[in-house]
Design a protein around this nucleic acid. Sequence first.
RNA 1: CUCCCUGUAGUUAAACAGGAUAUAACUACCGCCUCCUAAGCGGUGAUUCCAGGUUCGAGUCCUGGCGGGGAGGCCA
Length: 561
Amino acid sequence: MKSELATLITSGLQKLVAEDVLRVMPDVTPQIDHPKDTAHGDLSCNIAMVLAKQAKISPRDLATQLIAALPDNTLIERTDIAGPGFINFFIRASQHTAVIGTILEAKDQYGRCDIGRGRRVQVEFVSANPTGPLHVGHGRGAAIGDSLGRLLTATGWSVQREFYYNDAGQQINNLALSVQARAKGKGPEDPEWPVDGYRGEYIQDVATAYQAGDTVHAADRTITADGDLNNLDAIQAFSVACLRREQDQDLRSFSVLFDRYFLESSLYESGAVATTVRALEDNGHTYADQEALWLKTTDFGDDKDRVMRKRDGGYTYFLPDVAYHHDKWQRGFERVINEQGADHHSTITRVRAGLQGLDVGIPKGWPEYVLHQMVTVMRDGSEVKLSKRAGSYVTLRDLIEWVGCDATRFFLVARAPTSQLTFDIDLALARSNENPVYYIQYAHARCASLLLKAETLLGDEGVMAGLPHVDTLTEPETLGLIINLARFPDVVVAAAERLEPHDVANYLRQVAADFHSFYNAHKILDAAPDTALARLALVAATQQVIASGLDLLGVSAPEAM
RNA sequence: CUCCCUGUAGUUAAACAGGAUAUAACUACCGCCUCCUAAGCGGUGAUUCCAGGUUCGAGUCCUGGCGGGGAGGCCA
């Protein structure tokens, strides 16, 4: 509807140019908004105020002339000029109600589009090191990253979800040493406990399984424990597999699946790291100092240069990161979006600098980053910091056990990634409209319940029977709901473009509120037959939009509650 | 010291890339089930941290303060 109006306005402007009211066709695209106040019409346009200065006439005069220049159409009921020069458009009611038919015919395709045109995008997220259970922060990353994937898919991109993990560095050595110590009966209080060892109780579980000779299957490999307490390599491989399996279980119960797992160690095995170093050297972006090899990241906007090969010959973490992203580039992803915690902020400049240094035509802003801020967990009014399992942090599994998958996902994704998040356990458990998850799901369940009761009334045609009568849906509450349903495709596109899934959550809350108001204001099943059919069509359309929206967030849409 | 995020009713958030009278929920008080799920609906509250600036118009953009969080290492 917006685009149709934009076309009308554009041809109106062309006519004004032809009439010499405007000297040139403006290069600004008219901005069309939904006014907050319904007295301001259904859509409003600010173009007259924007162009008034260059046209050297007052905004309101320009608006008058523009309205006169608009072509004939069936869209607009009437127009109005308000305030400093807004043009307010009142759309014919039949144009509004038509969306119900559109939704019912498109079914779960409503809101989807092909802006991405099948181009390939990769979303990398979670990417936790396999050294312990996933914590709340990983959960936020999982919820946001997965929703981003769903949004990009819905807008026509071909999405790959990838999980990258470090199975080679110092942290993994510490893991193996910790498991070994546990297997030998030592605890964290023991003087011989490894420095920087992992202290959580889960280490004991891994040690026990290792000694028992268990076989574990993680997403990408199967490993049987060797049992030998002195074989550190075997302990390491087994421990990694064990913890990866635990993480995968948590992610699966969180409805998050990955297409590919990428091991840091493979970058060493394939020689990608060495190749990357050589390329950076050949391109003249490196220098030696104090027996270390430095990358001149200052050439690419960093505030100081960074060491890439340490004095002891090992690489710092960002070098494999550069090699890894070069690999992604070679795999042909037009876009790569990395969802990470805000503590990874400093890697952005370095990785991009390294990629520029390779000089292989990678765009400056590639890859893109979505960084989420910290999560704190509240319960009974105070901050929760401990999990029995992990020892020092609240795990994702804890959260899912406490409040369930749906509420956990919703709460973690419903807030802008850039804002700090307090996860209130009591709120997530609350069974009232304090709790937006249930508020939205309840609206969906109400729709489902109505349609179930209406089966005989609807007959063979089903909900389509109401379409000839939707013009009768003219009450304010009803039209408000319809207009919001019509916004859904715009909301999806905006959320995908801005990489902000929480837009969808806010939108759904609005739709649910509109629906509950409509439900309370009007009888649906007991209305006059034609009206009942029309309202049922609207109920079905609402149910579809809520279900599709919740799906974008990875939250279920229950038929009954 | 430098960089990033952030500051909106008592509380938690919203404001659809700068729009019109800043929107909701919680809380308090009042009302609504012989009726389609009351996990619901309807009614009453703001100097948008402070000071400047940009313009037709600023919660939103810019500059400078103040407050909260995070990052800065030959750690990942």
